[in-house]
Write a protein that binds this DNA or RNA. Sequence first.
DNA 1: CACGAGATTCACGATTTCGTGAACATAATG
DNA 2: CATTATGTTCACGAAATCGTGAATCTCGTG
Lengths: 184, 184
Amino acid sequence: MADEQAPDGTRSGRDEEAVLRFVERFASSLADTGWPRMAARVFVALLATDSGALTAAELSDELRISPAAVSGAVRYLTQIDLVSRERDPGTRRDLYRVENDAWQGALSSRDAALSKWAAGLLEGADLLGPRTPAGVRLTESAEFFEFIRREFDTVMERWIAHREDLRTAAEPTPDKADARPSGA
Amino acid sequence: MADEQAPDGTRSGRDEEAVLRFVERFASSLADTGWPRMAARVFVALLATDSGALTAAELSDELRISPAAVSGAVRYLTQIDLVSRERDPGTRRDLYRVENDAWQGALSSRDAALSKWAAGLLEGADLLGPRTPAGVRLTESAEFFEFIRREFDTVMERWIAHREDLRTAAEPTPDKADARPSGA
DNA sequence: CACGAGATTCACGATTTCGTGAACATAATG
DNA sequence: CATTATGTTCACGAAATCGTGAATCTCGTG
């Protein structure tokens, strides 16, 4: 296991097999909460690369799925802004990249659903009579969702700040980058 | 349409057909985000009653589904603490009730999933090497989820306070309770 | 303690979802 | 402009999901 290079430039002093198992395991827990299986596998595979990006062929190969499955998974992931597509410079292949702030984006995109729910609930409250117990319950539900939606922005701001703290705390000394095998 | 009473005690000056349509429509948007169809319909049907509770027979009748389907939906809903089961006093029938703070409970129960995800991600980070780019990405993802989980408690506290504000504001005069049939 | 109302379980059939293979589309290169 | 490498679309078949009907179970009641 001398000095081989994975396609994404990752140094393979790693137990690739164990990584594969991790990808499958974590993708499964995502799938358990409603993610499409293939999308989950592709996403976690990207997360687990140093470069954060892979080509369709690499994904197809590593996960043992057809190019069509990769295409479908990637379409799903780009639609919800978890993954971006870019052209691999100098070649003809596309590169699928996981955004650094992928999770935040994923949660943010729930905003639309929350608003839609709130609107639907208010509609129902109106129908049932806003002052009936049922109408009150629906109105309060709508208010809950609107509240959550608004609070979310605040939480994200706090996360950004917290992340900065963590990052600076993680740098032991303002030394040269030493965690960069720089295989490139 | 003099003074008929729906089974849950709801006065039916309402357009029952329109309510039914609302139930189906809103249940559909829940289903679109991954809810089991029957569970969504049962849940919304309960939301739309004044008493907040219905028997299995009433649900089966109103939604035109089999008792088995009701049983399955209710099992799902009680497992995630969105609905509670109680015995209809004096009779032999169970009553399924939607909790007043149903939505909060539903979101709270996501805590477990968040923790599980964070743990899985840390495991992966360890595997990939905590100081490699991939390991850093996974660690940061885990930290994100833990952060969200912690923040959630705060948001809920603020919601409770905000809800009280809304409730007192909703009472036109400090009169006798008129919009509070006490959804106990 | 037998009866019966009501709830649950289980196997089956239908519907839907999902991944594949193959044809098709697109674009860079000589 | 033909060739080749790459990505996408579409119909098909497999597999999982879901709701039903019928049998089974539970427990209050006469």
